[in-house]
Design a protein around this nucleic acid. Sequence first.
DNA 1: TAGCCAATAGATAGCGGTTACCTATTCGGG
DNA 2: CCCGAATAGGTAACCGCTATCTATTGGCTA
Lengths: 177, 177
Amino acid sequence: MQDAVLAMLAKQPAHGYHLHALLRRALGPLGESMNRGQIYVTLSRAERAGLVVCERTEGLPERPERKVYALTAAGHQRVAAWLAEVGRPKPDLAEFHLKLFAAAAARLADPVELVAAQRRELLRRLREAHQAALAEPAGSGAGLLLEGVVLRLQADLRWLESCERAWSTVDDEAEDG
Amino acid sequence: MQDAVLAMLAKQPAHGYHLHALLRRALGPLGESMNRGQIYVTLSRAERAGLVVCERTEGLPERPERKVYALTAAGHQRVAAWLAEVGRPKPDLAEFHLKLFAAAAARLADPVELVAAQRRELLRRLREAHQAALAEPAGSGAGLLLEGVVLRLQADLRWLESCERAWSTVDDEAEDG
DNA sequence: TAGCCAATAGATAGCGGTTACCTATTCGGG
DNA sequence: CCCGAATAGGTAACCGCTATCTATTGGCTA
């Protein structure tokens, strides 16, 4: 979450409500369950960590609502690192999806290359899972679990093919609003 | 995690290290990354919540190592609720796997019925995802994400078939050690 | 005009998951 | 006799997430 929020700030400074709207739009129906308060928790923690700063210049001078946050240099580094890394311990569909969105919107990375890197990682894990499954005794619980992992990895690889098709034909549709 | 730890205590009281070993064995290669300290964090929080109590009777009287925890009545209720519920917001492969394990070990529920309930839930979500995908404009990011969700759900359904095969032939292999 | 509701905007308390790190004992082998 | 592995217990701090609260603005209606 923190990475996704920071990545949304990479293109331009914004206030919490706007970030929330961006994330919801990027996630579609899956984003409807997102809690708005989480954005502010995430932003305040990122501010404490020095990844963002608040410039509360928006609105009338007497009513400084709309706290506008901007990425610091450390924040930009963090975003770049997030986009560069693959194969986190928690492979999340939505997280990778947001990564593609942010990369395209902020022109920080090529989505097609991100897809290729992710595919390499998933193939690597698929090999690992197969090997691990072979090492398990037949009928063991762990073997069954590994079978589930394999099936999911295969499904994710098929999804990546769709991602590649979609993002290789897109050039400038990643608008912000 | 908390639910899984509590479920491991449903069969008999145990101390943290033993619970850790049980979870690692149940998860196989996927459990190797589990941090041991997490068990103690989980147990202390469960104790604060009144779900477990500590009977530090094991070991010599002068050296009360091996804190043995036991479920309270509230803890048993919690475990029963965990086994009864389906379709959490976070469908996790390992969590369901552990649920089957715990249900079989503690004789608290029929694994085959749990599989059937899970399949009903996944089919329901599959219908939802399909409907949501139809409502999305073609080529939108959210539609792509929904396609990934559908592929994963289909993979999980295939995995459930393997689970059913495996657990319908098992009767008493869920030993504890 | 007063009342009400939705959208906008921000925030906090608290739980649970996770990691990184620390301590202490026991026991066998070099 | 010391060293290291296995066993056993623990803490601090972070992040994700939910439930809940406040406040303003603007429009609609009774």
